[in-house]
Write a protein that binds this DNA or RNA. Structure first.
Lengths: 193, 193
DNA sequence: AAACAAACAGTCAAGACTGCTTGTAAATAG
DNA sequence: CTATTTACAAGCAGTCTTGACTGTTTGTTT
């Protein structure tokens, strides 16, 4: 049982390295720059080993998508624990989260998935799951109730807003403007909820 | 003098066909699917002719960026003329505009530009110009004044929001939810301005 | 009309990327 | 302890893409 574990661990570790290298590559080089060769090199894994674990590029990326998703949720939850409880702090937390590398990787996937049928399914499913999770977390953090009319729209609009802000932050550093809009939005939201 | 014009027209027409094919290809196949060969075929232009007008892929895409930009502004202005004047109608107009193919093409460029230094410059400049234009148009349509405090933030938040909504609309049809959020925000905005 | 320039067509070589195949060492089963 | 399976390494073949090169047609100037 001990020995069997060793091989399983080795597999898991190799896969993890490959998936993380994929995400890293996505952030640094973008979708088309994320080649199997490049990923293998970054992961410190031979092409053969890579192909052994992920037979196609699609399979590798799909796995990386899952990886991103799981990691995203975990990171957000971890940050939420230590967040201050003012509306502004919560909105800021969510906005900053969407301005991270994780969002950048997700955006690359998102855009690539639009024209790649294989990916599309994967990403749609992931998005639905992740979206629900973030929505629920936002409700919790803002300490509001879904059932009250208007709350749903307000929270959804907030999430759409931060995504828009994150988009604007991709090419140039937009932190200052973002902070401004976040402050404005938090005020609006506070008197709404 | 007439004949000279004819050749100039031919050049302009060929270039236009190539640029429009590029945008079309961007929407249908995405960034990495937009190859020079594919574009030439779609435009009904030979590889030689294409290469004559745009020496590199980068040059072609840069030109297409300009094309998208100019067309975007024009389309938005044209639509604005016939728009109803309620806050809701204006927000809807801007939101719908961002849900169009033009935005999709721009998004592909936007994301690709993040990891492509050559493109990055082009797109940054375009974005600045286009952003200002849309901002000004929004002010005009909403019939509000920039100088009044709060207005600037409100309009910027609106634009960020519609970009976020547009993003969500890329993979799946999100029109229904979008309409809902738009209505909500229009109400909020109205009492703000 | 002759010389020159521009627009365009078609082909080709170099490089890159993906996935397949062959070879080796380690791990697990019997 | 042997047989078999699994993890991994390395190289290779096919395809795709880009940009260069050569030749032809069309337009312009003098």
């Amino acid at each position: 049982m001990e020995t069997r574990q060793r091989q399983a661990d080795r597999t898991r570790e190799t896969k993890r390295k490959l998936m993380e290298a994929t995400v890293e590559c996505l952030v640094e080089r973008g979708w088309s720059g994320t080649t199997t060769t490049e990923v293998a090199e970054r992961a410190g894994v031979s092409r053969g080993a890579q192909l052994h674990h992920f037979r196609t590029r699609g399979e590798l990326v799909a796995a990386a998508v899952e990886h991103v998703g799981a990691e995203s949720v975990e990171v957000l939850k971890r940050r939420a624990v230590i967040a201050a409880k003012s509306t502004h702090a919560v909105v800021e937390l969510i906005a900053d989260f969407h301005a991270s590398d994780l969002f950048t990787a997700a955006l690359e996937l998102w855009v690539a998935a639009r024209t790649d049928p294989e990916l599309r399914e994967q990403v749609l499913e992931l998005q639905a799951r992740l979206g629900r999770e973030v929505y629920g977390l936002a409700l919790e953090l803002l300490d509001v109730d879904d059932s009250k009319p208007g709350v749903r729209d307000a929270v959804q609009a907030t999430l759409d807003l931060v995504r828009g802000l994150a988009l604007a932050n991709q090419l140039a550093d937009d932190a200052k403007r973002r902070a401004h809009v976040v402050r404005y939005w938090a005020r609006m939201l506070e008197e709404q909820l």
